[in-house]
Nucleic acid binder design. Sequence first.
DNA 1: CCCTGATTCGC
DNA 2: GCGAATCAGG
Length: 177
Amino acid sequence: MQQLQWTDERVELLKKLWNDGLSASQIAGELGQVTRNAVIGKVHRLGLSGRAKAPSTTAPRARKAPRSAPSAPPRPSMPASRSNLAFKPRPAPDLVPETEVARLPEVDNVVPMGERCTIMELKEYSCRWPIGEPGKDDFRYCGARSGTGIPYCAYHARIAYQPVADRRRDRKQAGGR
DNA sequence: CCCTGATTCGC
DNA sequence: GCGAATCAGG
């Protein structure tokens, strides 16, 4: 796909729509193949910005900090001190449909209450499988000894890394209801 | 959090 | 010149 060309045709349409009061995103959608950013950029280059806007919104913005760091997007790690659930695969709800969760009563019971721990009590080797509602007072982590190189204990590691379909099959074979 | 236009700046 | 990223508001 070649770089989009602002043909006279497209520019005319842009001008028209802009003057009609359409928003940049609407125009972008109308034109197609361009983002609203592109539209706004073009509008400004054409010098037809500020339709009938109150200049109040156009407060001088402080100079932007040198925006150069395209190769520094996601932060790979966090301070070890509080790297709890920042770990790899978020086991969590998304992996297991609610109905599935409901059918896994054992999950919350494998670890005795006493062994479960709070975020502050997590050790490097503690299983980070969340138990309960995050944010609530009774929210805890499994806390059992985790496997080497894995943030979960053996039991939760199976659940965390196993596709739902497999889990379903497993339970069926195991004679689950 | 959704949206808006405005601005900067790497390409 | 282009437009993504970012910013400042609503």
